[in-house]
Each structure stands twice: as structure tokens, then as C-alpha cells.
Amino acid sequence: MFKGENDNAEPLYNHRVTLFRRGWSFQWCRWPWSGWLIPVERSGHMTRNTDTVFRAAEPDKLEGVAGQAWARNAIVSIANLPDLESIGNQDQELQAKLIEEYAAGTSVTTEWVRKRLKAKRPMARSFCGLPVECNGTMWGVLVIDSRNPEAKTPEFDPHFRFVAGLLGKILSK
């Protein structure tokens, strides 16, 4: 999937694939009764651990790229997100504007973006969320994120169709 980036000798931890499963999770001070997209596996060895969950609810209350793909039952591709890490907080007005832009594009709150920046968590510049099905039922979402603002989206990549079909068969066992 990231063959181009790999050929350019870019570190692979800049490009990740995370598999989210729809399930139930208690979230402090949040809606515990709604479904969540919980990470079950992530590519790479440096950024595998993640505790980020996204709300999987009705379209007006969903969260994140994963939540968008889930609720809309569609592939969601987001490109050209602002580079929040290199801007820093020198120009606070510009930073606030770009944080708003980032949050609007990825369906998260500005507080969520600020928390991640403060914790020095990686901020991807492009995303692709793909629904994962098992026996015709939505099971979860596969999210591909990259530091490359124009990473290729794999929506019609025959490899993705093959992997998604295989994943559905494995999950149905």
C-alpha cells in the first residue's frame, strides 16, 4: 500500500494501518451507552499501542475518520490536512485556525486535536477509512493514515479488495 513511500526510504511508522472493531467501551464522562470503534490491531512496531477510540453512532454524533466510514457505510478519504506539528504555537491565531480546519476535516473536536498536540502524538496529514464487513454485517473499520498529505487512497486497489474479502472470511470463522 505504501510502496511509493517505502521506495523513497520514508520511515514506515509515518504510514499506518489500524483495524477498529465496533464494540462497547466505558468512556469516562462520555456516552457509555453508545457503540465505539475500538482499535484491535495496528501496523508497525513503534506505534502499535493505541488507546484511541471513536464513537460509532448516528451520523450527526459520530467521531473521527473511523466513525465517518462506519456511519456512512462508505470509504472516506481525507487529504491535505494542515501540518500542525511544524507550525508550533508561535502564531497562535494561525494555529487555532489550522486546528479548526484539521478538526472539521477529521470529524473530531478542537480539544481532541489540542490534547494530541500537547501529548506530542503523531498528526497524520491524510486518512482513508474503509468499512470492514463479515457475513454482510459491518464489523469495523480499517483506517490508513499517513504523514504524506497526498497519500494514495486504495479504494479501488485490487489488493484492498482481496484483503477485505479475505479479512471478512477470516472474521466469519
Partner: peptide
């Protein structure tokens, strides 16, 4: 700036 595209589920 940010471009969002929704496509039909495969």
C-alpha cells in the same frame, strides 16, 4: 485546503 471524499463501499 482539506479535501474530503466519500466513495461507495467496495
Amino acid at each position: 485546503g482539506v479535501e474530503v471524499v466519500w466513495s461507495t463501499s467496495p
